[in-house]
C-alpha cells in the first residue's frame, strides 16, 4: 500500500510531464525533449516566488514560468525551423533542453532547493500507508489540470481548433486556424501543467537544476503508454512508470531504479509502441 501511495504522487508528476509531451506532439508531430527542463524551470520559478508568496501562489508562478519558457522556446527555436523536418525539430529540442539546464545552473547553482508545503502538518494515513499532504496537493493539481485540459479540448472552440489541426492540418489552415497561434497555445499549456505540477512536488523532496533529463524521459515513457494521444491513458502510464520505479527501489536497489525504468522504455518501444492504446502509433513517435 505504501508503494502505491508513493507511486501515486510520483506517477501524477510523470503523467503531467507526459501530458506536456502529448499536447505538443498531437499538434506538431514532434517530441519535445526539453519538456523535463521546462518543468524544472517552472519549479525554480516557484522557488524564487516562494520567498515572497505563499506556497500555492508560488506554484502558480511555477506554472506560469513553465508556460513562458515553453512559449519562448517555440518562438525562438522551433518556429524558425517550421519548414524543416520533424527530426530536425526534435533534435533541436534536445539542444534547447541542455541550454535551459545550463542557464538554471548558472543562475541557481547545482545545489538542491526547496520551499514550504501548502498545508502544514505531516501526512495522511490511508489503509496502512501514509502520504504527505503536499503529495495530495500534487495529485489534486494534476487531476484538476487534466480535467481542465479535457474540458478545453472537448468543449471550447480553441480546444477543438487544436484538435482539428492534429486531425487535418491542411483543412485547419483552410478554415483559417493559424498554426503559429495554435502552437503557442499548445506549448503554453504543456509548459504550464509540467511546471506547475513539478513545482508542487518541490516541498516534499527538493529540486536540482539537473533533474530535467531523467524527469523528461519518465514523462516520455508515460506519453508512449498513452499512445502519444490520450491524456487520461498518459496519466495511467505515469502511474505505471512510478509504480515500477518505487517497487524496484524498495525490493531491488534504489540506485538501479532509474536504470530499470529506462530499460523498460526500450522494451516498451520494441514490444508495444502503441502503449496502452489499441491503435499503432509507432509511426507517429
Amino acid at each position: 500500500m505504501q508503494s502505491v501511495l508513493t507511486a501515486l504522487a510520483l506517477g501524477a508528476l510523470y503523467g503531467a510531464l507526459g501530458i506536456g509531451f502529448v499536447i505538443v506532439h498531437r499538434l506538431t508531430g514532434m517530441v519535445n525533449f526539453a519538456m523535463g527542463d521546462i518543468a524544472v524551470a517552472g519549479a525554480f520559478g516557484a522557488v524564487v516566488a516562494s520567498s515572497v508568496l505563499p506556497p500555492l501562489a508560488a506554484i502558480g508562478v511555477g506554472a506560469l514560468t513553465g508556460a513562458v519558457v515553453s512559449v519562448l522556446m517555440y518562438h525562438l527555436a522551433i518556429h524558425p525551423l517550421r519548414h524543416q523536418s520533424l527530426m530536425v525539430q526534435t533534435i533541436v529540442t534536445l539542444g534547447v533542453g541542455i541550454a535551459i539546464r545550463s542557464a538554471i545552473q548558472l543562475i541557481f547553482g547545482t545545489g538542491p532547493r526547496q520551499f514550504e508545503p501548502i498545508t502544514s502538518g505531516s501526512s495522511l494515513t490511508i489503509l496502512g500507508g501514509s502520504i504527505p499532504l503536499q503529495s495530495l496537493w500534487l495529485v489534486g493539481l494534476t487531476v484538476v489540470g487534466y480535467l481542465g485540459l479535457a474540458f478545453f479540448f472537448d468543449r471550447t472552440l480553441s480546444g477543438k481548433a487544436l484538435s482539428a489541426f492534429s486531425v487535418n492540418a491542411y483543412a485547419a489552415g483552410v478554415v483559417g486556424i493559424s498554426l503559429t497561434v495554435m502552437a503557442t497555445i499548445a506549448f503554453a499549456l504543456s509548459g504550464a501543467i509540467a511546471g506547475g505540477v513539478l513545482a508542487a512536488q518541490v516541498p516534499t523532496s527538493f529540486i536540482t537544476a539537473g533533474a530535467g533529463l531523467a524527469l523528461g524521459l519518465k514523462g516520455f515513457i508515460a506519453a508512449i503508454l498513452g499512445g502519444f494521444e490520450k491524456l487520461g491513458l498518459t496519466l495511467v502510464g505515469g502511474f505505471i512508470v512510478a509504480l515500477v520505479e518505487v517497487l524496484v527501489a524498495r525490493n531491488v536497489s534504489a540506485a538501479q531504479a532509474s536504470t530499470i525504468v529506462f530499460l523498460l522504455l526500450i522494451v516498451l518501444l520494441v514490444v508495444r509502441p502503441q502503449g496502452l492504446t489499441r491503435k499503432v502509433a509507432a509511426d507517429r513517435v
Binding site: K160, S163, A164, V167, N168, Y170, A171, A172, V174
Partner: peptide, 12 residues
C-alpha cells in the same frame, strides 16, 4: 475554399 476531396475533419 472548399478544397478538392472535401477534407473534412473526419474524427470530429
Amino acid at each position: 475554399l472548399v478544397p478538392e476531396g472535401r477534407q473534412v475533419f473526419s474524427t470530429l
